[in-house]
Each structure stands twice: as structure tokens, then as C-alpha cells.
Simulated scan of single mutants.
Amino acid sequence: MKKNKFIVVEGMEGAGKTTACQTIKKILLLKMIKNVIIVRQPGSTFISEKIRSLITSEHKKEKLNKYSELLLLYSARFQLLKNVIQPQLKKGNWIISDRHNLSSIAYQGGQGIKNSLIYDLIKITNKFAKPDLTIFFDIKQEIGLNRIILRSKLDRIEKKSSIFFSKVRKNYLKYISLNSKKIIINANLDLKMVNNHLKKKLNNWLKNSQ
């Protein structure tokens, strides 16, 4: 059996990350890898889920400052890394995470926060665990936003402007290109084609990974 891995799924709203996490788990199960845990960021611990609710909800009495948002996100991330991801990896379990550090570079960077500050926080996360693979689902902002409008009520983040999401996608494309441990999936296609591309690329990665 292959050594366990930490796999991160990234992408903008409407890219299909949640569905992709389940698909990845099914692919791993077909490879007889049964010890797989799916987590989401922010979230997946008691405290992290409370922080998630605080970040995604709108607050009429007070606006959430972008630096407060960044630090809240990393508070949730540290809780998850310390209490779930790191110990489960040590036990030999595989981790699939819906979002990780690249989301902060894309989203918080899109709000004008300097990368140097985000990278200082990333250095701390790397002491807990580093992703073995990042799977980026690239989607045009208008397609992604149309999908989430049809899906459910928009949260505070999803209501941000198209200009903001344009910055987010540019950040994603820029920084995923610098990552040597990546798979890029065209999420603009229909679900069947997206899944086929995911299965092909992930199986190839599994074949060649140690």
C-alpha cells in the first residue's frame, strides 16, 4: 500500500470542490485505500466550525475587517491541523482537504493583504503538515457564480463583487503555476467530463507517487 498523502482541493465558488472530494475518496477506495478522511477549511473541528460561521455570516452591527478575517481563517486552520490533520497523518490515514493555504493567497490576497503576511502564517502551518498534492479546479467566475446562485442562498463571501472574484482567479492561476505538486482540472465542463479528467489525472499521479 502506498504511503498516506495529504491532498488539497482548491477552486473558486461553483467549481465543484465538495463533490470532487467525494470523487477522490471513491478513486482511492478503488485503489484499496480505505483509510481516507475528508475535511473542509475553515471547519471540521468544533471551534473551526464556529469560526467558519462567524466568517461566512453577515453581521449588521459590525463589518469584519480583512485582517481579522485572515487571522480567524488561520485560527481555524491551526485548530484543524493540530487536532485532526497532523495526528491522522501520523496514524497513516489519507487526508482530503477542501481548501488550504492557496485559498488564503487567492482570497485574502485579492483583498489587498500582502503575501508576506500570509506566507508568515503558511510557515507555521507547514510545521504541522504540507500538502503532497494540490488539485485546482479552474472555473470562470461567471460560470461558478451562476452555479452557486442556482444551488443555494449566497453567504457573505459569495456576495462579493465580480471584480473581487476576478482578482481571486488571477491569484489562483498565478500561484498554482508555481506549485510543482499540482493537478489542474477544467471545471467549466459538465460534471461527467470533469470527473473523467479527474480520474485520469489522479490515477496517473497515484501510479507515479511514492
Rank of each mutant, 00 (worst) to 15 (best):
G14T: 01
G14L: 00
G14E: 03
G14R: 02
G14W: 05
A15G: 00
A15M: 05
K17H: 02
K17Q: 03
T19K: 03
T19W: 06
A20G: 00
A20P: 04
A20M: 07
C21Q: 05
C21M: 09
Q22C: 01
Q22G: 03
K25M: 14
K25Q: 15
K25Y: 05
K26R: 13
K26M: 02
I27H: 11
I27L: 14
L28H: 12
L28I: 13
L28G: 10
L28K: 11
L29G: 08
L29E: 15
L29R: 11
L30W: 07
L30Y: 08
L30D: 15
K31S: 15
K31H: 15
K31G: 07
K31F: 05
K31E: 15
K31Y: 13
K31M: 08
M32E: 14
M32V: 09
M32P: 11
I33D: 09
I33K: 12
I33Y: 11
I33M: 09
K34F: 13
K34L: 12
K34N: 15
K34G: 11
N35G: 03
N35Y: 13
N35L: 01
V36L: 02
V36G: 02
V36Y: 06
I37P: 02
I38E: 11
V39L: 07
R40S: 03
R40W: 01
Q41I: 04
P42Y: 09
G43P: 12
G43V: 10
G43C: 11
G43K: 04
S44L: 05
S44G: 11
S44I: 02
T45I: 09
T45A: 08
T45L: 12
I47P: 04
I47L: 15
I47E: 12
S48K: 03
S48R: 05
K50I: 14
K50C: 10
K50R: 13
I51V: 14
I51K: 07
R52A: 10
R52K: 13
S53F: 01
S53N: 14
I55G: 02
I55L: 15
S57H: 06
S57D: 13
S57K: 11
K60Q: 02
K60F: 01
K60A: 06
E62V: 07
E62H: 07
K63Y: 07
K63E: 12
K63L: 11
L64R: 04
L64M: 12
N65F: 08
N65E: 14
K66Q: 06
Y67K: 07
Y67M: 00
S68T: 15
S68I: 15
E69T: 08
E69M: 04
